[in-house]
Computed example of a mutant assay.
Amino acid sequence: MSVFEVEQGSSPVILAFPHTGTDVPADIREKLNDTGKILADTDWHIHRLYDGLLPGATTVRALFHRYVIDANRDPSGQSLYPGQNTTGLVPVTDFDGKPIWQDGQEPDETEVSRRQQQFHTPYHTALRAEIDRVKAIHGVAVLYDCHSIRSHIPFLFEGKLPDFNIGTNSGTTCDPRIERAVADVCENAIGFTSVLNGRFRGGWTTRHYANLPENIHAVQMELAQSTHLASEELPFAYDETVAAPLRAHLKDILQNIEKIAFDLAKGN
């Protein structure tokens, strides 16, 4: 099975999709329990949501499911949010805290290491290559990490999640102008709610690749799935009518990021 897919573009902006994949090898799938086989924690249809919004953007998409191994987790296994409920490099529960593996079938350290080499490392090698390629062309690269999650998950957060959840790890992963441009669109999006560096402050991808002295910037966008799905339960269908207003705002965000990236390339 293919681990990832890349579409190279000419823009300084790179869109990463670590959690839209649904491929699970047969030997791994057979160890999942009925809860795990639902694959509920997929970032459903996010690559479709962003499709065509920024012509020229490079895209890097993991095709494997996060239950195989999570492409947005530190390969060392260190928690992104110490002291808070979360899931690990290879999750043992879903986002509701329910076990996803059959009894006695949770992957051991050897299996986690195997999956890291087969899936996690190749995806990030490809992502790093695209960041380096774009940086070499423009002198700047902006990584925009695309995510979504159900709007109500008590195991992870209280109440209803805002529609737009912007993560810059408290302003450390991108130029302030990029952070402000993203936040301004979200704050002014009528009918939508937003938060900057709330429950989701930017995952491992955002924190790992950001390097402001080298002019490499990163932002994570976590979207509530109520903004673009017909239902946040099976079959997790995409709703074009519901998604249309969101796509308009996302297009503004990406265009604004690209403009700032060109300014940064000029040293402005």
Rank of each mutant, 00 (worst) to 15 (best):
V6N: 10
S11I: 00
P12F: 11
A16K: 07
P18A: 07
K31C: 12
L32H: 02
N33K: 12
D34C: 07
T35S: 12
T35A: 13
T35N: 15
T35P: 00
G36V: 13
G36H: 13
I38Q: 13
D41W: 10
T42V: 09
T42Y: 06
W44L: 05
I46Q: 13
H47Y: 06
L49M: 08
Y50A: 08
D51T: 06
L54T: 09
T59I: 07
V60F: 05
V60K: 06
V60A: 08
L63A: 11
R66T: 12
Y67K: 00
A71F: 04
G77Q: 03
L80N: 10
L80G: 07
P82H: 07
G83Q: 05
Q84F: 09
N85E: 08
N85G: 04
D94N: 11
D96P: 00
G97P: 05
G97N: 02
K98C: 05
P99V: 05
Q102C: 11
E106N: 07
P107Q: 12
D108T: 09
E111Y: 03
R114E: 15
R114M: 14
Q116K: 13
Q117S: 14
T121D: 15
P122F: 07
Y123Q: 03
Y123L: 06
A126M: 12
A129T: 09
E130C: 04
R133G: 05
V134G: 02
H138V: 09
G139Q: 11
A141C: 09
D145I: 01
C146W: 08
C146D: 04
H147W: 09
R150T: 08
H152M: 10
P154D: 06
F157H: 15
L161V: 06
D163I: 01
G167T: 02
T168L: 02
N169R: 15
N169C: 10
C174E: 05
C174D: 07
R177Q: 10
I178A: 02
I178F: 06
E179S: 11
A183I: 01
C186D: 02
N188V: 03
A189C: 04
G191R: 10
T193I: 07
S194R: 04
S194C: 13
L196D: 00
L196S: 02
F200C: 02
G202S: 09
G203N: 02
W204K: 04
T205M: 12
A210G: 11
E214T: 06
N215A: 14
I216D: 01
A218V: 03
Q220Y: 11
M221Y: 03
E222V: 00
S226V: 12
H228P: 04
S231D: 14
E232S: 08
P235Q: 01
F236V: 03
A237L: 14
A237F: 10
A237C: 06
Y238W: 08
D239S: 11
E240Q: 14
E240K: 14
A243R: 04
P245C: 07
L246C: 03
A248L: 10
H249P: 00
H249A: 02
H249V: 03
D252S: 11
Q255M: 12
I260C: 03
A261S: 14
D263L: 14
G267H: 11
N268E: 15
